[in-house]
Design a binder for these strands. Structure first.
Lengths: 354, 354
DNA sequence: GCGTTCTCTGAAAGCGCTTTCTGCTACCGT
DNA sequence: ACGGTAGCAGAAAGCGCTTTCAGAGAACGC
């Protein structure tokens, strides 16, 4: 308590080491370590001295030294496109929550959709000996990229690292949490058909993303099954962002808005689209119905509230985290997450049924 | 290329070490290290051999060993209340972007507003020898908490760690990025007064948060200056969340909505409030004007778009990061971030001026 | 041509921990 | 009272790297 520690070992610069603690407690290094880790019984008085010394010196173990000695770290890596995207933010919340329960620290990386950056981050996380690497969000359909990812991931896995992906194709043979994008989009299509719509448009992100392939494919197939076409000029491609959605909707209007129902492949795009429609005086759902995908939290609060396909985002984050931590023996598990169509006020029957 | 490496050192379990690389390249450990770090000139042929060996073995340096040997890590810690809150998400984006530029990894922790958890995370980050610890978001006005935080932070700083905080009181003597909450709220109040409002209500978060103290104080003071009272029963306290805002607005209605203008202390609360008003048929801005604070990206897309005090969130994240990395010599810098009142359609002149 | 300076390589000493392994003391049964 | 066995403390060997510190050639000047 009233202990002066000015001028002790390393007034400036240095961190207190276990050695310092041991010295002060007048025990060996080994004993100090054992007390602090509870590895073995230690005589009560020594134990007390060590604890006292540690607290007086405000000792904090060096996690790097521990990781080195134990050959295992206390952190996991999370790679996503952009933390500030509500979709990822919700997932990240689930991941961090689950990580906290395991006493793990989350190392977060945003790639801003740059494949090269993604590879870099995997390398960094590998260097950090992260217990697991979590890849969140649509991958790229790109051979070269897959190869360089593999070049990082394979040795990592071979060395005992765990990889889990969320919402990616299984080009990488790893544990996977996979929302049923195709089925969800198809279900949405059927719902919209049932409302009476026959003229559709789609606002999509880059076609190279696996998510786009699945959602667009599922949607289109379901329409085709009902004999309803999806004309190419009614598919507008932009980035998977709010502004992308805005731009896509604007472009759609410019091309002549023939559709009575617009499907934005993500809620984030739908938000932008909704604003664009409002700006251009296109009433939703009066003139067009609008639907999204993901059910990010905010879309309830839009006007009109958005019809979408709900995914349990936070839970998905927890599951991918837990999947990565599960028994490494049984590999390559795939958990499929069904989406649920949530009808809200942004969709309605078309005014003039075609 | 065509190199078979089956059965090499550690087919399973082990990571490739620098030793392995050196052995394969038939050079010493030291030389391998020098090549990989570019520390010193190394004869061209040796260099080539090392590089080849490293790539063939898919070598990834052990960051823990590096950190230990170099006595410095490559990571910074970011502590916030909740990543999925758009306010923090935007800031986190700025932080991660800035960190990427410095080649640093961000370790992310969400406290979910639990002070104890916050202290725990600081301890973990300290153990990780994070280059800097960033504390984002309102602190607690609580002596005991301040003490335990100090107990972690002080030794960390003494040992050379850098701490920077964003949007907290300076009870901790560290670098600070401080939005001008008081001034911003006051400016907002004056703007609303100028619109003709005389009856105000406030939707606030927990009074123990410093942000609440400042924003509420600034708002109230500015009203007082104009001789306008802010009755206690028109201040509703809830959590700083969307649902908190919803609940607060609902409670306000229950108490009898005497105000013509409601100030929600954060945009996130305002979002909830807006939905509550809509649900209860209270027209915004027809019956009440509504204003928030922060200017998180989504509020442009609300209906009506929200009047608020804009803060450059992403930039704030970058600045707090850079502040933490700046020359440690000149300590305790404070960067003040002015807020700018942004008038949007959620506010209007009161219908029946009092 | 020989001492001197340069340049580059390798051996070895840590960084701060964990974890054998060894050895001591104390206690047990008989 | 004595050998045997726990129980517990300390010495020391790593974990995988960086970085002195020496030393060995090579290049240089005079």
């Amino acid at each position: 308590m009233g202990e002066k520690q000015t001028g002790g070992s390393g007034t400036t610069g240095g961190h207190v080491t276990l050695q310092d603690v041991a010295r002060r407690a007048e025990v060996s290094l080994a004993t100090a370590s054992r007390v602090l880790n509870g590895t073995t019984q230690v005589r009560a008085d020594l134990k007390e001295r060590v604890l006292a010394a540690a607290s007086e010196l405000a000792y904090a173990p060096n996690a790097h030294a521990q990781a080195l000695a134990r050959a295992s770290s206390q952190s996991i890596g999370l790679i996503c496109h952009d933390v500030s995207d509500p979709y990822f933010a919700a997932i990240a919340r689930g991941v961090t929550r689950a990580a906290a329960e395991h006493g793990l620290l989350v190392m977060l990386a945003s790639t801003f959709r740059d494949p090269a950056r993604e590879v870099d981050y995997v390398a960094m996380l590998r260097a950090q000996r992260a217990r697991a690497i979590l890849l969140i969000g649509s991958g790229f359909e790109d051979r070269a990229w897959e190869r360089s990812m593999g070049a990082e991931l394979d040795p990592y896995v071979r060395a005992g690292g765990r990889v889990a992906v969320l919402s990616r194709h299984r080009s990488l043979r790893v544990d996977t949490v996979q929302p049923e994008n195709r089925e969800g989009a198809a279900a949405l299509a059927r719902t919209l058909l049932a409302l009476g719509h026959r003229d559709f448009a789609v606002l999509t992100g880059p076609r190279t993303l696996t998510t786009v392939v699945d959602r667009l494919g599922g949607f289109r197939d379901a329409l085709a099954e009902a004999g309803v076409p999806l004309p190419d000029d009614q598919i507008v491609e932009e980035s998977f962002t709010r502004d992308g959605g805005y731009a896509a909707a604007t472009e759609l209007i410019r091309r002549g808005l023939r559709a009575t129902c617009v499907f934005a492949l993500t809620d984030v795009m739908a938000i932008g689209a909704l604003s664009a429609f409002r700006y251009h005086g296109v009433d939703v759902p009066g003139r067009v119905s609008l639907a999204g995908f993901d059910d990010i939290p905010i879309v309830r609060d839009l006007v009109p509230p958005l019809t979408t396909v709900a995914l349990p985002l936070e839970e998905m984050g927890e599951r991918v985290m837990n999947l990565a931590l599960r028994d490494p023996a049984r590999r390559s598990r795939v958990e499929r997450i069904p989406g649920e169509v949530v009808l809200r006020a942004s969709t309605a029957a078309p005014r003039k049924p075609s």
